[in-house]
Design a binder for these strands. Structure first.
Lengths: 154, 154
DNA sequence: TTGTTAATGATACCCATTGTCAATAGAGAA
DNA sequence: TTCTCTATTGACAATGGGTATCATTAACAA
């Protein structure tokens, strides 16, 4: 679908000595074609419509692979089902954090104050690396709440 | 073990019309006696040593209950196994956040810059509540990394 | 002490994710 | 293009946190 991201994926895979397979392209495309945060099963369903011979196991494996390569991020919202999102998605804002409705699991992205958040995180990161001798590889900032729709239903 | 926290627990339970049972006291005590972040199974093992007739199901139920009452917090570190921690633990600092080794799952608590973090979070919270009409109930701020021990093993 | 019923414990179950392994298909060599 | 090698796949079984069920037990009010 998106030539750029397909070429990008191709290059990244080949550079790591990995093969560029149909499932890998299709799964990456599926994430590139939505602004939603899909679970592995949801990715599978969407892929399955056009390519019924691609299995759920492959979806899991591919999402893991893409996450390991830094192409995809895994999002834990506390319901025991991971959601996945393409890091560089032209349909989305750049670095953002998430606001999650703990009732209906709806996820809202925000980028208000994100620069400020990142500035502070960087400062904390330096201090923690030094003090606890960690190599910091990532962070999570997330808000939980109840959206207006779910509040009305009670 | 701790008279204060036992009295506290008793009061909170009774005020909600809930019964003060042996398992509830013991499970809360178990969390009060450690600075570690225990999984449900780890709580069960510890409880089981002295009270072998308390079942794992009850541990899960009680941890859920205590979380719902705001006495315990659940911590997701991304390995599919929740960890629990007593919110007001005399052996621990007050409000803190976590640094997690993604390799060995060790959890380090930190309170450096926490005031600053909380200040910013509060500001973001106000903006998000307004803009997206959410009632914000909580937040997660967490760093991931590799601890020095795990880095040496490679 | 007794009656009521919330809470418990044993067990079966659910369901997201991972392991296994024979079959398939990228991609470099010929 | 065809061949070869082996990474990758897909079907299926297995794992493992966590939850539902239900008969039994034990808080607690009277």
């Amino acid at each position: 679908m998106n030539q750029n991201s397909n070429a990008e994926l191709h290059g990244r895979l080949r550079k790591s000595g990995l093969r560029v397979t149909k499932p890998r392209k299709i799964i990456a495309d599926t994430l590139g074609n939505t602004i939603q945060h899909l679970s592995a099963e949801e990715v599978y369903f969407r892929v399955h419509k056009a390519y019924p011979n691609i299995g759920l196991t492959t979806v899991y494996r591919t999402l893991d692979l893409l996450e390991g390569m830094g192409i995809v991020t895994r999002l834990q919202i506390g319901d025991g089902r991971a959601r996945y999102e393409l890091l560089e998605n032209p349909r989305k804002p750049g670095h953002h954090h998430h606001l999650v409705c703990t009732d209906c699991k709806r996820i809202v992205e925000y980028s208000d104050f994100v620069d400020e958040e990142l500035g502070l995180l960087r400062k904390v990161e330096v201090e923690l690396s030094r003090k606890h001798d960690f190599r910091i590889t990532g962070h999570v900032i997330q808000f939980q709440g109840i959206c207006s729709g779910c509040r009305k239903q009670h």
